[in-house]
């Protein structure tokens, strides 16, 4: 049993991997939140074109496996950008997107679609009367959004967003497919180097589990904070 916890000097690789995993996760969720707000605006706005665009976005992203999207975006986005720039500038431009950005863009785009649905539900949960009252008080749309809608939408959206983060941090493991040096790939390299696959994959899984537990605790805190003004039954 001793060999199960003996990393043969490769334990530091897992530490390095965790940092990249968390960094990718945080950047991706930030992008996903921005895309989610835009998508939610598209779905709830009166603009027909925006609504259709947002509907296509969420339908396609939620119907196709993450792995397929990751490979498609990673290999596709560079060529697409090059093609567009070539059309616009009339000369060939070489773009090289590093793996980290590609990973963040892919995960952000995928989870932006899920965030769209979470925000949509949250904004729909805000009582109509409050919006009307804000309008009657003479608030501009931006002020109304900032003072009335956003603070409440957070409260309704937090459980859904917390869930989204838990799914997203696990999905970062798929980034190992495009050779981003995150936890999964680092443990893969280490496992192959010392021929102890079970030891390293199990260690990686325990680290993911740790991230999940810490996230859940933070989510609990955040929800308590967001609900501080709400009377409990």
């Amino acid at each position: 049993m001793g060999e199960l916890i003996d990393f043969r000097g490769y334990g530091w690789m897992l530490g390095e991997g965790v940092q990249v995993t968390i960094l990718v996760g945080v950047c991706s969720i930030a992008l996903a939140l921005v895309l989610g707000l835009i998508g939610c605006w598209g779905k709830l706005s009166g603009n027909r074109a925006a609504r259709i665009a947002a509907d296509i976005y969420t339908t396609v992203v939620r119907g196709v496996p993450e792995l397929v999207l990751i490979i498609l975006v990673y290999y596709g986005i560079t060529t697409l950008l090059q093609y567009l720039l070539q059309l616009a500038l009339g000369e060939e431009v070489l773009i090289d997107i590093d793996r980290f950005s590609a990973g963040v863009i892919t995960l952000g785009v995928i989870y932006g679609a899920f965030a769209t649905e979470v925000f949509r539900g949250a904004f729909l949960a805000i009582p109509k009367g409050q919006v009307e009252a804000a309008k009657a008080a003479g608030m501009s749309p931006l002020l109304m959004f900032r003072r009335i809608m956003m603070p409440q939408a957070w409260r309704y959206a937090l459980p859904g967003l917390g869930n989204l983060w838990l799914v997203l941090i696990k999905a970062t493991a798929l980034m190992s497919v495009i050779q981003l040096d995150e936890l999964m790939r680092k443990s893969d390299i280490a496992a192959r180097a010392v021929k102890l696959p079970f030891t390293f994959y199990f260690a990686a899984s325990v680290i993911y589990l740790g991230i999940t537990v810490v996230s859940m605790l933070l989510q609990h805190r955040a929800e308590a904070w967001a609900n501080r003004g709400v009377r409990r039954a």
Partner: peptide, 23 residues
């Protein structure tokens, strides 16, 4: 349930497919 819901599927797959080689 907690373990399988809290870890990535890819890790579980590697743990069983490659990890079994250790035993």
């Amino acid at each position: 349930i907690f373990y399988f819901r809290g870890t990535p599927l890819l890790v579980q797959l590697f743990l069983i497919y490659y990890g079994s080689g250790q035993f």
